[in-house]
Amino acid sequence: MEIVEILFTASFWAAAIRIASPLIFATLGELICERAGVLNLGIEGIMVAGAFAGWMAVYSGTGLWTGVCVAMLVGMLFGTLHSILTVPFGLSQHVVGLGVTLLATSSTYYAYRLALPEVTSPPKIEAFQPFEIPILSGIPLLGPALFSQTPFTYLAFVLVAVVAVILYRTPLGLAVRAAGESPAAVAAQGLSVTAIRMGAVIVGSGFMAMGGAFLTMSAFDSFFFEMVNGRGWICIALVVFGSWRPGKALLGAVLFAAFDALQIRVQQTNFGSQIPYQFFLMMPYILSILALVVMSRRAKVPAALMVPFNKGER
C-alpha cells in the first residue's frame, strides 16, 4: 500500500526526473553515435571526465553555463580521439571504446589528484538551483515534478526535441541516419561518410560529458570517484530499449529513473528495511538487462552499426 502512495507524491516524480536528466543527456549522445553507425563504449569514461571538467571549471571561478560548455568540450575532445580511431582507421569499436573509457577515467583521476593533492573530502560548488516556471509549476503533481527543476534539466528535455527534429526533419539528420543504415548510399550521394560519422561521435560525446556534468553541477555539488558508477553502461541499454529513437529513449530514461527513485523510497519503508540494501542497488542493473532481453527482438538496430566503411571497397 505504501508503494502506491509513493507513486502519487510530487517529490517522487521530481526525484525521478532529476535522476533521469543525466541519463537523458548521455543516452541521447550514445543514440546519435549509434544512429551514424558507431558504438561508443567510451561513454562511461567520458561521463567521468565531463563530471570532473564541469565541476572543476566552476570551482576555479567560471559561471555555471561556462562549466557546462567546458564539460562538453572535454567530451568532444575524447569523442574526437574515439572517432579518429574508429571511423577513418576502422579499428574495433569495442576495444577503442573501452580504451577511451580507461583513458578518460584515469586522466580525470590524475587531474583530480594534481589539482587537489591534499583534500580528504572534495570541495563543494554553488550548483544549479531549481527554477520554478511561472504558472506551469502551479499545476498539482505535474508542476512540482516537471516544472520546478534546475535549468540543466530543462535543457535535457529541449535537447531531446532538438535532436529528434534534426534527425527526422532535416537533410543533416537524414545523412546521419543513412550513414548508420547504408553508408555506401551516402557515399554515392557525394557525401563523406567519414565526416558524418566523426561529427556524430564528437557531438554525441559532448552530450555524454554533459550528462556527467549534470551529476556534479545539478544533482550533487561535488565530485567523487566512482560517481558515474555504471550509468554510462545503463545508457547503452537505454538506447536499445528506446529502439534508437530520441522520444522513446527519453521515455525509457524517465521510466528507469522512476524505478530507481522508487527503490530508494521502498528501502525506507518497513517492508524494505528487512531486505538487504544491496538488493535494491542491484535493481537498476537487473532492470537494464531485462529491458535488453525484452526489446532486443523487436528493436531495429541500425544496419551498419559497428561496420567500418572504407571508401572504394565493395
Binding site: 563504449l41 569495442h94 558508477n229 555504471g230 553502461w233 545503463i234 547503452i236 541499454a237 536499445v240 538487504p276 544491496q278 538488493f279 542497488l281 542491484m282 542493473y285 537487473i286 537494464s288 538487462i289 535488453l292 532481453v293 532486443s296 527482438r297
Partner: peptide, 23 residues
Amino acid sequence: RFGVDEVVTTLLFNFIFLLFISM
C-alpha cells in the same frame, strides 16, 4: 538465444555480482 549484446550484459553483471558479494 535472444541476440542481446554481451558487452552490456557482462558489464552490468560486474555491478550486480559485486553488490551480491557485498550482501
